[in-house]
Deep mutational scan, measured.
Amino acid sequence: MATDAALRRLLRLHRTEIAVAVDSAFPLLHALADHDVVPEDKFQETLHLKEKEGCPQAFHALLSWLLTQDSTAILDFWRVLFKDYNLERYGRLQPILDSFPKDVDLSQPRKGRKPPAVPKALVPPPRLPTKRKASEEARAAAPAALTPRGTASPGSQLKAKPPKKPESSAEQQRLPLGNGIQTMSASVQRAVAMSSGDVPGARGAVEGILIQQVFESGGSKKCIQVGGEFYTPSKFEDSGSGKNKARSSSGPKPLVRAKGAQGAAPGGGEARLGQQGSVPAPLALPSDPQLHQKNEDECAVCRDGGELICCDGCPRAFHLACLSPPLREIPSGTWRCSSCLQATVQEVQPRAEEPRPQEPPVETPLPPGLRSAGEEVRGPPGEPLAGMDTTLVYKHLPAPPSAAPLPGLDSSALHPLLCVGPEGQQNLAPGARCGVCGDGTDVLRCTHCAAAFHWRCHFPAGTSRPGTGLRCRSCSGDVTPAPVEGVLAPSPARLAPGPAKDDTASHEPALH
């Protein structure tokens, strides 16, 4: 009773807030009518008042009428009001819900409408889902798969039609296919003929059939049928067999079959498995989609049935006599038709004709302190090069084509190399640097090759510096006499390219 009084008091307290929050009759008014909170006449009256005075006034009048009803109607109103779709449509209802007392429970059932309790003993237990329907569909599909699609060729003596089998029958139906081979029951999904010589313990000319048996419980189990008994694959494991010639990621696949039913060829011909030897223990289905393919039931050349050999690369099948050149017997292992072999060759040939990528240039590290003349020119003028003790990398590039010797140069053309002071002394051009340390401070000019250098860098042994005729380390061993002091540049003949010694390969005349 306390809860009923509290709900009535809360409705009177929030009546105006609810009326202002509800700006549309749908969905709240319609939901109240659906849950029998508002009768039909009051529903029509509220809609009429909404058209006349507006939605807030109409709902305020409806809530005032609701306060005169019993506690069950008020409880049902609060339940409908706080439904998710009403809270989404009328956003101003959320503060009312947040301020609702926590001790007021809106989930209690309506009085007088409590459903009768059902004894637990009368409640049926839930049924577990079964796979009976899938099993029945598999039974119905198996006879259809064994139905012949056409008439065999005159040369083929193997013609068999499976008798119709009602689904209610649980007995196995067997077809006489000759040579002791028996087909599987209607619940078998796949059958492959297997030679009895590969099964340990088999006697006589009995041949087993590799099947997948579907049981009534819905589970499946792969086994071997020899005669009327089934054997699990673990009985046929043979770890010492060295003649297993397995197909790549293979499961067994029928390579020879008669049109209309699988079996042995007439005249004692023995149908073979995809792999010879003992049956392997793992009978998992292969991951290669080509091995799941269903080959055609007629020859791809003459479009006739009979004894066919199936290609492992495509769905086509052929007569042995229709092949070019014809085959006398079934080859062992994987067999592919000429079209598949030709496609494989065409895929391999473009790969062989692809040009080989060019090898990157060989990189040879230079000892610290040495650099090529090109690196000396590329440096920024007026700045010493940083990191001189790091190992430089010199790339061996292809030799350029031989060019004509340089033409003779006048001494005026070499004027930018040297600057003559007032006393006739050779001065260095701006930006000249030593080729060893890279520093341009207090550098000297070689009178023979006009290269800038430090005496301490080229002659670290402490050799005394002569007063005139300074030469760098590369030119100090040259027998050519030094030019007379005061000459602007060496003779043009000295600039012609010539053979250089091994220790002077990195010091070429550089223009500054």
Rank of each mutant, 00 (worst) to 15 (best):
D4H: 00
A5F: 06
A6N: 01
A6I: 04
L10K: 00
L10S: 01
L10M: 04
E17R: 00
A21G: 02
V22Y: 01
V22M: 00
S24Y: 04
F26H: 00
L28G: 03
L29N: 02
H30G: 01
A31N: 00
A33R: 00
D34L: 04
H35M: 00
P39K: 00
E40A: 00
D41E: 12
K42H: 02
K42C: 01
K42I: 04
K42Q: 05
F43E: 00
Q44M: 00
Q44E: 00
Q44W: 03
E45A: 00
T46V: 01
L47S: 04
K50G: 14
L62M: 05
S64F: 02
S64R: 00
W65L: 03
W65T: 10
L67V: 05
L67A: 02
L67R: 00
Q69S: 01
Q69R: 12
Q69N: 00
T72D: 15
A73Q: 00
I74W: 04
L75G: 07
L75Q: 02
L75Y: 15
W78G: 03
L81E: 03
F82Q: 04
F82R: 03
D84L: 01
Y85K: 00
L87Q: 04
G91E: 15
R92P: 01
L93H: 01
Q94G: 08
P95I: 09
L97Y: 15
L97M: 07
L97A: 00
D98E: 02
L106M: 02
S107K: 07
P119H: 12
K120H: 09
A121C: 14
P124Y: 15
P125L: 13
P125S: 10
P126A: 05
R127D: 03
R127F: 08
P129I: 03
P129T: 12
R132A: 02
A134C: 14
S135A: 15
S135T: 15
E136V: 06
A140T: 12
A141I: 07
A141L: 14
A142W: 13
A142D: 11
P143E: 15
A145E: 02
L146W: 14
R149V: 05
A152V: 12
S153I: 10
S153D: 06
P154E: 04
G155E: 07
A160D: 09
A160P: 01
K161D: 12
K161P: 06
P162S: 04
P162C: 14
P162G: 11
K165T: 00
P166Q: 12
E171T: 15
Q172Y: 15
Q173H: 08
Q173S: 14
R174Q: 03
P176M: 15
G178S: 13
G178K: 07
N179I: 12
G180K: 10
Q182T: 15
T183Q: 04
S185H: 00
S185D: 04
Q189W: 00
R190M: 02
V192Q: 07
A193K: 08
G197P: 13
R203Y: 05
G204L: 03
V206D: 04
E207V: 01
G208V: 02
G208R: 02
I211F: 02
I211K: 02
Q213I: 00
Q213M: 00
V214C: 10
S217V: 09
S217W: 02
G218C: 08
K221R: 09
I224M: 11
I224F: 09
G228T: 15
G228N: 15
F230W: 09
F230R: 05
Y231W: 11
T232W: 04
P233Q: 04
K235E: 04
E237Y: 05
E237G: 11
S241D: 12
S241L: 12
S241F: 13
K243S: 10
K245T: 01
A246N: 02
S249R: 01
S250T: 06
P252Y: 06
K253F: 07
P254Y: 13
P254F: 03
V256A: 12
R257K: 08
Q262I: 10
Q262N: 12
G263M: 09
G263A: 08
A264V: 11
A264L: 12
A264S: 12
A264Y: 01
A265E: 09
P266N: 09
G269A: 14
E270H: 15
L273T: 07
